[in-house]
Structure formats: C-alpha cells, structure tokens
Design a binder for these strands. Sequence first.
DNA 1: TCAATTACTTGGATCGTTTCAAAAAACGTG
DNA 2: CACGTTTTTTGAAACGATCCAAGTAATTGA
Lengths: 354, 354
Amino acid sequence: MTRQTKPRLSDVAKLAGVSLGTASNVFSYPAKVRPEVRERVHAAAERLHYLGPDPAARLMRRGKVNAIGIVAPAQFRTADALRNPSFQMFMCGVAEVCDEEGTNVVIIPDPAVSPAINSALVDAFIFGQVEHLSVARPAEMRKLPFVVVDFDGGEGVNSVRIDARTGGYLAAKHLLDLGHRRFAVMSFLRTFDPAIYHPPGPQRDGSIAGMPIDREKMEGYRRAFAEHGLNIDDIPVVQAHPWDKSAAALLLHHAPDATALLSMAAMQGVSLIAEAKRRGRRVPDDLSVVGFNDIPEAQHSDPPLTVIDARNAEKGRIAARMVFNPCQPTAKMLNPSLVVRGSTAPAMLSNRQS
Amino acid sequence: MTRQTKPRLSDVAKLAGVSLGTASNVFSYPAKVRPEVRERVHAAAERLHYLGPDPAARLMRRGKVNAIGIVAPAQFRTADALRNPSFQMFMCGVAEVCDEEGTNVVIIPDPAVSPAINSALVDAFIFGQVEHLSVARPAEMRKLPFVVVDFDGGEGVNSVRIDARTGGYLAAKHLLDLGHRRFAVMSFLRTFDPAIYHPPGPQRDGSIAGMPIDREKMEGYRRAFAEHGLNIDDIPVVQAHPWDKSAAALLLHHAPDATALLSMAAMQGVSLIAEAKRRGRRVPDDLSVVGFNDIPEAQHSDPPLTVIDARNAEKGRIAARMVFNPCQPTAKMLNPSLVVRGSTAPAMLSNRQS
DNA sequence: TCAATTACTTGGATCGTTTCAAAAAACGTG
DNA sequence: CACGTTTTTTGAAACGATCCAAGTAATTGA
C-alpha cells in the first residue's frame, strides 16, 4: 500500500476496526470511549502516522479554529504591525493569554489596505488601534466576538483603551512642574509622507494629530498648559510618522529655543534625544524630552527616556481575555502612569525667567 | 424573515435565481459568469449581507487557507517569539512577502511546548530557529511546504541560514585587528535558568553554546583566535538567556581584565555596555563590545553597538518566498557582515603589551 | 435467569463550499 | 432554419470531520 495520500480518520477507524464515529470520539471526547478501544485506535493512528483530525474539517463542523486574529492598526499591513514597538508590546500581551489558552495568533492587515481579513480563519478578532468602528464589520457579519482597542465602540461593543487624555496631561504637567515654559510637540502622522511643520496659530484643528487617541493626548497637553496659563496653540508642532528619522531635526530646527519636548510616540522621543545630542544640546541639562509608550528602546537610550506608560501589554492581555470569556460587552479604560527617567530635569534658571 | 443565521452561498444563489455552482463561480472565477448574471448575484449578496464564501468551507474543498505559519524558535511560545528583537526582524521579513501576496501570518508556539501547531490552519510552515528536524514533522505529515531556519535540513529540505561561522570569525577578527588580546564571551542559554560561568579550560564542550548556530559562532571565534595564536578554551564564557539582566554583571565580574567582549546576542551586547558604564568603565575606550544581530536597540544604545548583521529580515523574506514558490528544495546560505559602530576601538597600548 | 439500567458504538445526516462532466443556451453560418 | 461551435449554467459528488438518535453490549438487581 503506497502512502500517497494523507491518512484520514476513516482509514484509522478501518484499521482499528471501529466506526468512524468512535474514532472521532477518541480524538475529541476520549472519555466516551472504552480505554481498550481507545488504545487500539491510537495504535492504528500511530501506524498510519495520523496526526489528529484535520483542522479544516473539524473547523467546518465545529466552527472553532483555535486561533484569534489581531488586526493591525489603521493603514498598517502585517509587517508594519510587527515593526511597531508599542504594538509589539500589545501583541505580546495578547499572545501571553493565547499561550495559556493554547490558541494560535493570526496577524491580519488593516482591512482598508488588504482584504485578507475576509479569509482569516479565527474564532475572534482584536482590532488594534481603531479609527472607525467600520473596521469591525467583518467580525460582526461573521458573528465572531471582537474587541476594539483605543477606541470607544459605544453600547454593546467590547473595548479597551488607555486614558490618553490623562496621559498627555501627566506628561505636560511633569515638564511644567519642572519649570519648563518653552515647548514643542511631536505629533503622529499615520502615513509615510514627509513630516509637516505646524507653526503656532489659533486655527489649528484636530488634523495636527493623526488618530483619535492622539487628539486625546493633545487635549491632555492643553489642559495642563491651561493650568499654567499657557495655550497649546502657541506651541510649534511637527507631525511625523513614528519612524521618520528626519522629523527630529525638523522639530529642533523650528523650535530652537524650546527647553522641553513632548512626543506622542516613544520612538520619536528617542530620536529627539539623539538629534539633540548631535546638535550639541545636552539632555536633560539643556533640553528635557518626554515620550509616550514605554517601549524597550526608551529604557536603553542615553539618557533613558522619561515616558508615559500606556500599559500596552496589559491592554493586550485584557483584550484577549475579553474575547476568550465572552460576557456582557464592556468598555475598559486603563490608567497611564508617568515613568520618570533621565531625559527630564528642572529647567535652568535662565530659561525659567524667559 | 428573521436573520438568525448567517447567509450561505446557497441563499444568495436562490435569491439571485441561479444555481449554487454559478454563484460559487461569481466569487471564485468571476470571468466564467456573464456580467449580467454576475451583477444579479452580487446584488443578492448585498441584500443578504453575504460577505463572500465562508473561509472554512472554502478551505475544506480547496485546501488553501491563505495563511502561512511561523513556528517560534525552540522552547519559545508565541509571546516569546514576539518579544525577541532578532526574531521580530525575521518575522517582519516574512510578513513583507505575505503582505505582497495578500496572505495572513499565523504565529505558532514551538510544538515541544504546545500542541497548537496541530490545529494551525496554514498553507505552509516556516520553522524559526530549529534545533532538530523533528519539529518539522507536522508539516511533513500534512504534506505542507515548509522551510527550516538556521539549520541544515539535509537533502530535499528547504532551508535558509546565516553563515554564523563567518559571522563569529568577523566579529573576533575585528577585535583582534584592533589589537585586543584579552577577551570574554557571552554565549546563549535557551532556558530562563540563571546564567552559568564557564571558566577557561580545555575540556569545555559544545554545551557552552545553546543552539547549533551558536556552536558555529563559537567555531568562528576559534578560527580567528587561532590565527592570532590564541585559544578559545582559554577565554572565560558566560552562558545566559538573552534577557537575563544579571548576566552582564556576572561576565564583567569574572573577566575584570578583558578589554574586548564578544556577545552572541545583540541584547546582551547592549546590556554589557550599560553594565560596563555602571562599573565606571568607558566604552569603547577601556572596553570594546561586539554583538550579534543588528537589532534596533543596537543602533540606539550609547555608544551604538558594533554588531554582526545576521540579515534577519532578508532571511525572513527568502524563507517566505521559498514556501510561496515551491520548487526544487534548496539550502540557502546568507553572508553576514560586520557593522562597525561606536562600541569598538583600538586596544590601549598598555593593554596591547600584556 | 430476566428485565432494567447503564455504557459504548454505529451509521447516516450535515457543515458550506468547489469542482467537473454534462446539459442548455447562445451564436455564427450557409 | 438546421447545424456545428462556443459560451454559460446546472446538478450532484466530493472535501473530512462532528453530531446525534438509535442500536447493541455489558452490568446490575431481584
């Protein structure tokens, strides 16, 4: 007998001398089968090198895949998701729970960029940083549980998000409390287009921040500034993709006298430190920098970057648990915290007085 | 009519007044269907909120999932894979190709740790850093194409690997050429056990390096040393998990007079720089460090770490292309290169003479 | 020993598509 | 309009398991 084709459960059943149904039970509900028979079936499976029920066929009947899908943030393809440090932390959190549950993780590009989501075989979806609820349509249509991240889905939708408003507030307040009064902001640009410089001015709208969550950070900054009689509209902003290496130079060029920088992304915070040092400015002596998201790079830069910890891993864990134990849909909000490291210091007296 | 259950293709076909087969063709081979009919079917699908063929059923018939699986390195669960910087780069490379092909990526724990691989719905497997060919059994049994990484699978098995021997050689030669003569090595421990100090001695065997690829690095070091009349067995080695933060201190404690450090992992290289600075040693003035794998952290440390670039992303791209265009199985070997950054400098004269 | 109870097994229906041979329709031509 | 081609459409048979009602065997109690 040539083993041309892969063994099916029916082959195993035949060899073991039992019915297909019984063989199926051996693999799916072993308790239902007499140990002796079970043994025989396993032996037959062994001999045929049968690896267990075909996942596709099982899925078909059972409707369960043993996998959950993480959908990349807006405009991201799979590779972008894997490259992004804060999303990596989020995925790690999700994966920790999946490892416990014994399920696989599928990474899926943003549906706006690729239709791959429609052919994704998963039991549930986690939509990473969401802009519109519409991305969740495929999940709703397929009646699969899902969670949206960093977005308020409203009634009846699971969501987890960080209180970015408070995060922004804490970042700005930290610098203000250190006596800083001359600021510049690095905000988030979703696309890979060149960085944009937004000069101070009262007419700036929400578009100077890339995602809903970034607008919230900005509001947090605004509130902290207001408490010190400053207006965010008077502060220069550069909007750039998190990996745009030219952005740091652009910001430092347009805000040469700022003593404190607020970055909405941790990577840009790290770049700002590097670029500042390159320009001969000492961090934190001449210039303080605060980033957002406590990524590993923030800890290894020199000096280590002070950041707002957006608790990405925890966010991932919570999101995963939500889809694993489907219950009343809830909107969970996490509290960020300030992690003070070496990139911030009191403003020098000379700067304070200005 | 209550829409309790999700619409099936047969519902769409009925509503559109065509046969099931034709409706199927509309979604799978539109060219086979008259535009007018196609239109009608699409309209019916629209009305029923039908999202396209059920992936599970399609998979069942077609045998294609539109996803490929990346299996985590030995002993790694999914979360470990996502946390490891050099494996991240590898996965990014894979993902880039998958994004082009429009397929999803599934991350699967090492079969030795979790059986999730048996229920993984993928069209092909990429086995990340492999120790034994046996991990590929599930792929062989299911007759799915696969590639093993950093391992020679022998005849008839696809593989991609870095020439780690040359990598090790380049790293050691770089330091030797700079005049260094007193070394210490940080090698790789697969488990989370405490770091192990291996004193110099002729009896040390392969176990002082964790994976096949690490033994190759060690051989590269040995060759370079031999060219300068040195013996690797006379050099202290600490073997540690890449994220074991205590390992750097252990190494510097046991090799206080080394002027050059060779690390088999980039993260440990970064840690060594940090720990050395903490102990008041200047890098690269007093101490040179070379790491392996050009991860982002290597670029952002201070000073930036000199590394061997193991071309992880390229490795991922090649692995992915191999499983997408199944052809004659090949064993592809990549050449590493030395990336000189700020963590290495000529040995001081006083050290040279010793 | 027989009926009642319990513990396993069985066979066939089913999941929602794709596939493919065969039938039907449409088309072109003399 | 009858004929041969070509283009479309049809209907039934897979794909490889799970599920369940119904049947058979083993066990118990009297």
